[in-house]
Design a protein around this nucleic acid. Structure first.
Lengths: 228, 228
DNA sequence: CTAATAGCCTGCGAAAATGCAGGCTTTTTT
DNA sequence: AAAAAAGCCTGCATTTTCGCAGGCTATTAG
């Protein structure tokens, strides 16, 4: 039985929770694995049971942009009815367990469970709002502000509960750059500067954020907020 | 009776279509009017019956970014249950008629009409995908490409049917700049250059796109497509 | 008709971002 | 343990973007 209380599927009635539980499969993906690739057909929806995923989109030249970060309880795959090709991919950032439910079953579940459909709708609505605020930020911010935005976005998405402000980020410079639409060198420069100010620490490969409050203060003028 | 066949409300059964028809009000907003303002409470959802709307978000300094364009049949307001403050506003680009339905009524409609909820969910899902592809483009494109993206975004959103490739855009340079995260001068420069190439025409205040195909070709490497 | 205003275009210097290169450190492989 | 590879930092030259300023045009107001 699935232990994730926040999983959207939990909005179904008991009969359907069991039926979806039977219909799903839940493979474990190693770090760096594609959950689905750009240009592939979407045959159903993915629910993250455990782990971290980035949603990406690339141009033909191979340049890649991370368009969304997703964690436990999040939904992937833009559940489509009918087959849609679709120019977005998803890659695990660490070992992750991800449930898959096919479109036909999902559609039946939507028709039989209004609350489930409603909560999925709300999920997309919230993600859209987050994406739009991101659009604003990426459109108006300079490089340093974007790097701070990226760090806070990672923190917001992957800080579990309120266990202090300690967030560890285990991505390389290139991957951080792709979240905010810049390049590895710029990220390096800004991180160095933030380190000198004591706003971040680096331990081994990971970046730690001991003072999230001050970081947020830095980009306050964009009305960036943890909860959207 | 509402004449918009694509309106999402049409997914409800007849009883509910009538009930929502009674519950809604449908004011006509003049050009340049706020439908709702940034920071206001969201008390329900808006359905565009006729007209064009931009969804905006600003920073404290007053710089404004257009995060989404919406036209006939589109939904605004991120229907929320409960009251949520929310840092996004909407402004008409021309005289527009927009229906409003309050959250309580909407919630009942969602619970009673699975197909309605499902289609609203799909609407948000599609808009999210569009927003994410926009994130990619704004992250990877240079200025000229962004301007072309902006023109095509306007064309896609407001080209009604397939009446040739004639699209008229009646925004000033500043407003175009805010769609793509740049400034009026840059837009001016790119438009001049595109005009010299014969890819756009300006007649009075409006920009015409006589050759959408070639414009799309210009940014093909970003896999930008009319239908997402 | 004239004046005033708003929008538009474009040159130019300043600022920011980019991307290469070289040196360093860390991790992985052999 | 040594070698190879990958990642990281930073200086520098180049390119791009920014934003002011001035002149032009079109629209609106008087």
């Amino acid at each position: 039985m699935c232990p994730i209380a926040t999983c959207l599927v939990k909005q179904c009635n008991h009969t359907w929770i069991n039926r979806l539980s039977d219909a799903k499969n839940s493979p474990i993906y190693p770090k760096g694995q594609f959950v689905f690739m750009e240009g592939s057909l979407v045959l159903g929806a993915y629910f993250i049971l455990k782990g971290k995923v980035k949603v990406i989109s690339s141009n033909v030249g191979g340049k890649e942009q991370t368009v969304r970060l997703a964690g436990e309880g999040h939904m992937l795959g833009h559940s489509a009815i009918g087959l849609e090709k679709y120019s977005i991919g998803a890659v695990t950032l660490e070992e992750s367990q991800i449930c898959f439910i096919d479109n036909a079953t999902l559609y039946e579940a939507f028709m039989a469970n209004p609350k489930f459909t409603f909560e999925v709708m709300r999920f997309y609505s919230r993600e859209l709002r987050k994406s739009e605020i991101r659009t604003k930020c990426l459109g108006l911010m300079n490089n340093e502000e974007k790097v701070i935005l990226g760090l806070l976005y990672l923190a917001d998405t992957y800080l579990l509960g309120s266990q202090g402000n300690q967030v560890e980020i285990d991505l390389n410079r290139q991957e951080i750059a792709q979240i905010i639409g810049t390049n590895a060198e710029q990220v390096s420069r800004v991180l160095t500067s933030l380190k000198k100010e004591g706003l971040i620490q680096t331990v081994d490969r990971t970046i730690q954020l001991p003072d999230i409050t001050t970081l947020k203060e830095r980009i306050r003028q964009y009305a960036y907020a943890t909860s959207y």
